[in-house]
């Protein structure tokens, strides 16, 4: 046994390695299924995927693309947070600084912005795909409801993010949007007050939308995404062709 082989064996036999990789490298079908079931991230997925389900033209990867964009937005959003202060005197200048003074700032912001538009677009297309395949029918009706909640959360993330550049278009878009909230039955004025933090769009509104955009809504969305993926497995895998 050479020196390298001995090092390799020692590492593989160490408690840390065996704790991280609890199975040997899966080489047959049974151990592959076992590895998927034993992994915290992979276990949300079905252990086996039917052959029709991996056909690109069946799903067009729309759900996967939406999730990919969610991840992209999370990562670029964290980068942007380093240079953005949700203050009515600084926010707009910060956006300009991100675009002109921060290295790779313009592309980061553009990826975040286009990713946001694309995510709303792909979530909508995903919903259409599921609808036209009748994949909302029992036993998948609960997952359809989770999906609708995720659509609202996506739109909510898009709406709250729209105010953050604090320019004219965002200011007036949020003024219009929250005025619509003023037409809700029964809870119009309290809801508007809670959303705006004052009687009109201002510093409080910017801070509230910021907290919703970077913390509250992404956390809720991540939780529902986990349920959404797990439910596919629990409801018998992806729907079949009609």
């Amino acid at each position: 046994m050479s020196f390298l082989e001995r090092v390799d064996t020692t590492i593989r036999r160490s408690p840390v390695w065996r704790s991280l990789f609890r199975n040997a490298y899966p080489n047959d079908e049974r151990s592959r299924a076992y590895a998927v079931m034993n992994n915290v991230f992979l276990h949300l997925h079905p252990v086996r995927v039917r052959q029709h389900a991996v056909r690109f033209a069946y799903t067009f990867c729309l759900g996967g693309l939406s999730f990919f964009l969610f991840l992209v937005l999370t990562v670029t959003g964290v980068y942007l947070m380093f240079f953005y202060v949700p203050s009515d005197t600084q926010a707009y200048t910060n956006i300009l600084d991100i675009q002109t003074k921060v290295a790779f700032g313009l592309i980061t912001r553009n990826i975040h912005r286009w990713g946001a538009h694309l995510m709303v677009f792909f979530v909508f297309l995903h919903m259409m795909r599921v609808f036209y395949h009748g994949a909302y029918k029992p036993p998948r009706e609960f997952n359809w409801v989770v999906g609708v909640l995720l659509l609202f959360l996506t739109v909510g993330l898009s709406f709250t993010g729209y105010l953050l550049p604090w320019d004219q278009i965002s200011y007036w878009a949020i003024t219009i949007g929250t005025n619509m909230a003023g037409y809700l039955p029964l809870i119009n004025t309290p809801f508007k007050l809670l959303l705006l933090g004052s009687l009109e769009v201002g510093q409080n509104t910017l801070l509230r939308f910021y907290v919703l955009h970077i913390m509250a809504l992404p956390l809720i969305t991540a939780a529902f995404l986990a349920v959404h993926f797990w439910r596919i497995r629990k409801d018998g895998g992806i729907s079949g062709p009609l």
């Binding site: 007050l193 933090g197 004052s198 009687l199 009109e200």
Partner: peptide
Amino acid sequence: SLHFLWPNLSGGFG
């Protein structure tokens, strides 16, 4: 939470 988030309008418009 609602009470916490309820805006305090004193000293400003409202």
